[in-house]
Design a protein around this nucleic acid. Structure first.
Lengths: 246, 246
DNA sequence: CGGGCAGTTGAGAATGGTCAATTTTAGTGG
DNA sequence: CCACTAAAATTGACCATTCTCAACTGCCCG
């Protein structure tokens, strides 16, 4: 299996917030991020500690096992979160989209690698800084914990999918879950963008790239979906829901 | 697939703590539970809110989708945590052992069912009561969040196992992880008790009961393990680690 | 125009599943 | 304590979904 770990360069662009241009108050993902529900004063406090950080396609935000020196809010773009087996087999634990928070668990080290699937913009907080704010604001910790609880149920969904669904069901369920996640950021549409490659989908669904391709082709031939460049159009939602429900 | 949901009776025995006999101070799992690190005063506060609750084999502590009216510390025994697909396919998300906390995510409803694999003793807290204590004690929330972060990495381990490991590797990794979990409660031994049946293991590992049985037999024949009534003796740890590492 | 990469498709193999029979274990009542 | 029954576990033969390997297509970008 080919594994492209991407470049490990220091990310390209770091700049401190300038409230006038792109402060938290104007943040497009604030209301769906862990920052939702923070008071204005708290928001300003966080903002003072944050850096914007952008990342090019293929670059690594952080690597599995590295000390978690920072946490990140994803503002734009998508990343894949992967774990590697010593022999190179790979599992994509999930994809981070705008509004997602990376480093949620506040652990010593990252349990996954995070790699940009395209241009990515993030809001970065140093570990110490963020820990201090969390310490002082129980409300933020509750928000973080609620998010962690949600991630836990997503992980359960994924375990059920990996353990008990067929290849076709896996692909259908994945397309629907991706559509729902885009919907949260206000991109509800029957056309679902697929920012990741077939190999990433395969490693997420516990399949091979060939099987993913075959299942997409089969769904396309059955007019359940329509394959379009860079994404998929969902034609027969009923059929997809039926497949995904098992 | 046969699914035995067990009895949904009201659990058999509820009794309030009597500090003299089995208070938190004497609790065998306190130091490995979320209660670890609480001050004595806090412990007494929690204790006043707690009930001991015991459960017989096959009975359900709570069901998937039910309102989470309570949270539980497992004191003794083991439970399986399952999710069901509409067509009856089942995934065992994990097994709760002494020291584990059920309802960690503090969500509205339980995302899994919890069923006793044998006689179980738990420490029960009403939802409102517990929420109030968490509200007042940021330290407890941090402990809960740390536990949730740990659960999240366990879920990732399991996703990697389900998606990318062979049947033999799955079984080997499961035996080792179970051994490690028993070790945390002070039962480090080459003989690992298996409180769950083969079907439960199968539904946990994304296999069939026959495949689990075959893999155990194969490992037994290869003298990697020794099947004993109610459990397994791990003979060749190196080989098991090698299989589990992939 | 051509090289390279991502994706698709096909043929054959294999891992794990299905179905069925058998053995072992555990539980129950005499 | 043992006989009997039911449930759990094991084993075998066969099958199918998915994987592997390979060839091919189309597209992007120099």
């Amino acid at each position: 299996m080919l594994v492209d770990t991407g470049s490990r360069d220091v990310p390209a662009h770091i700049c401190h917030h300038r409230r006038s241009e792109d402060g938290c108050a104007d943040c497009k993902v604030r209301l769906i991020s862990v920052c939702a529900g923070l008071a204005l004063a708290e928001l300003e406090e966080l903002e003072a500690l944050s850096q914007h950080l952008t990342l090019d396609k293929g670059h690594t935000l952080f690597g599995q096992g590295e000390p978690a020196n920072a946490v990140y809010n994803v503002i734009a773009g998508a990343l894949r979160l992967t774990r590697l087996l010593p022999d190179g087999r790979r599992q994509v634990m999930g994809f981070a989209l705008p509004g997602d928070f990376l480093g949620l668990a506040l652990r010593e080290c990252f349990s996954v690698s995070a790699e940009a699937l395209g241009p990515v913009r993030t809001c970065r907080f140093g570990r110490q800084d963020f820990a201090a704010v969390v310490e002082a604001k129980p409300h933020l910790l509750r928000s973080l914990h609620a998010r962690a609880g949600y991630e836990l149920t997503l992980a359960e969904d994924q375990m059920l999918l990996l353990g008990r669904r067929t290849a076709e069901e896996k692909v259908a369920a994945f397309l629907l879950s991706l559509r729902d996640r885009f919907a949260r950021t206000g991109h509800l549409s029957v056309t679902v963008e697929l920012p990741m490659g077939r190999q990433d989908m395969a490693d997420h669904l516990g399949l091979t790239i060939e099987t993913v391709s075959r299942m997409l082709s089969r769904l396309d031939r059955a007019r359940t979906i329509l394959l379009v460049p860079g994404g998929v159009r969902l034609l027969d939602m009923d059929r997809l829901e039926q497949l995904a429900a098992g």
